[in-house]
Amino acid sequence: MLSKSAARAFFLSGTLLFSAVFIWLTVDTFQRIPAQTNAGDLTESVVRGKHLWEENNCMGCHTLLGEGAYYAPELTRVYDRRGPAFIGQMLRDPEAVYPGQRRMVTYDFTDEQVADMVAFFEWIGRMDLNGFPPEPTIGIAAAAIAIPGGKRPEIFSQVCTACHSLGGVGGTIGPALDGVGDRFDRGYLMRWITDPQAVKPGTKMPQLGLTEEQRNEVVIFLSKQREAGL
């Protein structure tokens, strides 16, 4: 039967061995991190963004690299998913972007700080994370209904689908956009996404801060959303 001194020897030798292996792997990992995370792109702006991320305890609600709290969206790929325009609007006035929804603290970031946060998210989004976050493989995204009007413009997928769905893909905060081209003409759609309050005072639809070119792209795409278009 095992003696106490043998048990102690098992404990001490196991602990020493695995501590040594762990330290060796740590050293090796630090040598490999730069290549895996594009450390060369770590500009001053990105570093400032990282410190803003910490000073404001963003991971007290959000997750980044899957780490943080589970009250607000995962932000690892937010740069690709939502784009810089949306991130900027969200950081300036979150309650305007998601009216009546779960609330985010409004920060008084300067334009430079917003740019730093965007740069930080862009850098994070390019890391090789061994497959995280996974692409959705079943259900809604995979079974998306075919829509008219060709490929969704990138700005549409980034900004509009945060609240609206089209062909079954997107949020449910605003109304679905299927057939929207039957209901509104281009002029109305343009006035609407340029300044929603002017068209319908008191509406919850936020001003999106898109450029002229982006608005045109979205309006042309939306006006093709007709039932007969397929």
Binding site: F11, T15, T29, G66
Partner: peptide, 22 residues
């Protein structure tokens, strides 16, 4: 406690899956 360290030290690796580590 021997088993704790035998598994737990390198078990730290389950936090290193998706954070930009090998």
């Amino acid at each position: 406690v021997g088993f704790t360290f035998l598994s737990g030290i390198l078990g730290t690796g389950h936090h290193y899956y998706f954070i930009g580590t090998p």
